[in-house]
């Protein structure tokens, strides 16, 4: 009962935090494919978005801002081509059925927190209160806090044959492989880790099942006790909910993904930068996908 009360208190506290203290600097950055269903032979179009709670501006293809980008499927790894100013930023051919992974990493960006309170708001929003103490211990300034940050984005799409029924066997085969992903059956290429500095790895096919287990990696190793945020936008009501979980000792966190709609997972970690021109370095991982209602699958 005490545990339940504590949980309720925490929930209430987080509700208050979310409702009244959404900080200006807590901008998620994610990939949002459009024009579903995605069919072989058609062009994938995906926006790069920057905002909060699924409300965000689209950003253009930007060769100076993109460090690594492409589309990964079972038999193909395609680089992203584009011209500065292209909207949507991702326009790529779909060549086969099955689970695909869009990937994007950005170059280094710089942010100035004019006041410590701005920085603190960002830390609180992402469950990074421990950084505040380290900030004091490192004797860093209360004003003009310089942060370097990098984005590591992934997005899953399920590509189907334009001819109904043609892709059923391929899909079910792959789904079975993905879901089981035992040592004997390697996971689908789209589910394989991509060695992003901060990476959200789906351990099962996110289109299958009612639960999705994620593993958060920092520099290739599981990152324990780090907050992962899930934003879910309901297909029908368009209501957005934000759910928080901390990774366990193995960097794992399991989320309820039964409901149809759009899913955006986000996690942030803060490092002491090797480069002395900034006080802190932050890495942002995001992972998105859309889950159709069962009748539409």
């Amino acid at each position: 009962m005490i545990a339940l009360k504590r949980l309720l208190n925490e929930a209430c506290a987080l509700l208050v935090l979310s409702a009244f203290a959404i900080p200006a600097v807590a901008h998620e950055y994610w990939l949002q494919p459009t024009d579903m269903p995605w069919l072989v032979g058609e062009q994938l179009r995906a926006d790069v978005r920057n905002g909060e709670n699924f409300v965000g501006d689209t950003l253009p293809f930007d060769p100076d801002a993109f460090a690594r980008a492409g589309l990964i499927s079972e038999n193909h790894r395609l680089a992203l081509n584009g011209r500065l100013g292209d909207y949507p930023a991702f326009q790529m051919p779909l060549q086969e059925t099955g689970l695909h992974l869009l990937l994007l990493e950005t170059t280094r960006r710089e942010l100035l927190h004019e006041q410590y309170s701005d920085f603190e708001t960002f830390l609180n929003y992402h469950g990074l209160q421990g950084i505040a103490e380290r900030h004091r211990n490192r004797d860093l300034p209360d004003q003009g806090i310089v942060e370097h940050y990098y984005r590591y984005c992934k997005s899953f799409i399920d590509v189907r044959s334009p001819t109904p029924g043609k892709d059923q066997s391929a899909q079910s085969t792959q789904s079975t492989q993905s879901a089981q992903s035992t040592p004997d059956t390697p996971p689908a290429a789209a589910l394989a880790p991509q060695m992003q500095r901060l990476e959200l790895i789906a351990l099962t096919d996110p289109m299958q099942g009612n639960t999705l287990q994620l593993q958060l990696h920092l520099e290739g190793a599981p990152l324990a006790n780090r907050q992962v945020e899930l934003f879910h936008r309901d297909s029908e009501s368009a209501a957005v909910t934000r759910t928080l979980l901390d990774t366990d000792a193995n960097g794992l966190a399991s989320f309820d993904t039964a409901a149809p709609g759009q899913y955006l997972f986000n996690s942030v970690t803060v490092l002491e930068p090797a480069d002395t021109s900034a006080h802190w370095e932050t890495l942002w991982a995001s992972l998105t996908f859309h889950k159709s209602a069962p009748s539409l699958q």
Binding site: A11, L14, E52, N53, L244
Partner: peptide
Amino acid sequence: SLMLLAMPVSHMSGVQAHELR
């Protein structure tokens, strides 16, 4: 805890960030 912490936040959308593009 996941169920408890799922909170409606859709009312917080605004015009922010439009000037970025």
